[in-house]
């Protein structure tokens, strides 16, 4: 028993290192002076800290704007996909309706088409609608991409809350909406957090569609992808840090809801 425990703990440490070491190295490089990057052997401890690389990076054109665009689009995508996905997931979990199976498969079909195939006609349509090169346009695309997982994750979570609990709430005086808010939602929070996390990261990472649908209002990854290839090495590390950091902050915020999943909250 204790032997197995050790193996599991060792694996945990290894996986954590696998995730954390690159982030550490990028952070280190981004926050070190440019000269120290060329030193040999490369110092692995923060010996020559300097904000110089980061400040130059942040001052260069399009970076701050891209960051703001990315965060705006990411958060709007989370809100919009939850606004549409939660009711859909609830309906899938609670009601039997004609064509339910086909609907579920249809959901996944949106992910069957490569974004390239979608983006060009979308770009064309958005040009006509005046949505081209706006954060709204990209938000719509990302919401469409995120919805299938949002719906499937939340419907699985709603299935975990027995319908009798909602019925009990209604017997004791709650309207269907109040029953949902006071009984189902608190228990579904971990799942909703997980799907929000997933959506945000998806939106944050999605480059291709965002590049095609925008010109001036690039998201940060799209912006960086266009420019970093021609930038000096130090800048690439700074860009990497800028890409990782907001996602990490978002995960840190959502994490405590996620952890509830194994706590006392869910049965």
């Amino acid at each position: 028993m204790t032997g197995r425990r050790w193996v599991i703990q060792l694996l945990c440490v290894l996986v954590s290192l696998f995730m954390a070491v690159p982030i550490y190295l990028i952070t280190l490089a981004a926050l070190s002076s440019r000269e120290s990057l060329d030193r040999f052997p490369l110092p692995l401890l923060p010996t020559s800290l300097s904000g110089e690389t980061m400040t130059t990076f942040l001052r260069s054109t399009g970076v701050v704007g891209g960051l703001i665009n990315s965060i705006t689009i990411g958060l709007s995508t989370v809100v919009l996909s939850l606004a549409i996905g939660l009711p859909a997931g609830y309906a899938l979990a609670r009601y039997a309706f004609r064509g339910k199976d086909a609907y579920q498969i249809g959901l996944l079909l949106t992910r069957a088409l490569p974004i390239v195939v979608l983006s060009v006609p979308l770009g064309r349509t958005f040009l006509d609608l005046g949505l081209y090169d706006t954060t709204y346009g990209v938000t719509l695309l990302h919401t469409a991409l995120a919805l299938p997982t949002t719906i499937l994750i939340t419907s699985a979570i709603f299935l975990g809350v027995p319908p009798e609990q909602e019925e009990a709430a209604m017997i004791f005086g709650a309207s269907p909406l109040v029953a949902f808010v006071r009984v189902v939602l608190p228990q579904a929070l971990p799942g909703i957090a997980a799907s929000a996390l997933f959506t945000f990261v998806l939106s944050w990472n999605e480059v291709l569609g965002a590049s095609i649908l925008t010109l001036g209002r690039r998201t940060l990854p799209a912006q960086l992808l266009a420019t970093l290839a021609d930038s000096p090495l130090a800048f690439r590390f700074a860009g990497g840090l800028a890409l990782v950091l907001p996602a990490l902050i978002f995960i840190a915020i959502v994490r405590r809801y996620l952890l509830n999943m194994w706590g006392t909250t869910l049965r």
Partner: peptide, 29 residues
């Protein structure tokens, strides 16, 4: 609807709310 019938019910599966303490469960109505 059920909430306007002025009745009370005990369910086979108990259907008590796992995210609320016993106090809040009893006082839900």
């Amino acid at each position: 609807p059920a909430r306007e019938r002025g009745l009370s019910m005990v369910f086979q599966s108990y259907a008590i709310f796992p995210h609320l303490k016993v106090r809040q469960n009893i006082g839900f109505g």
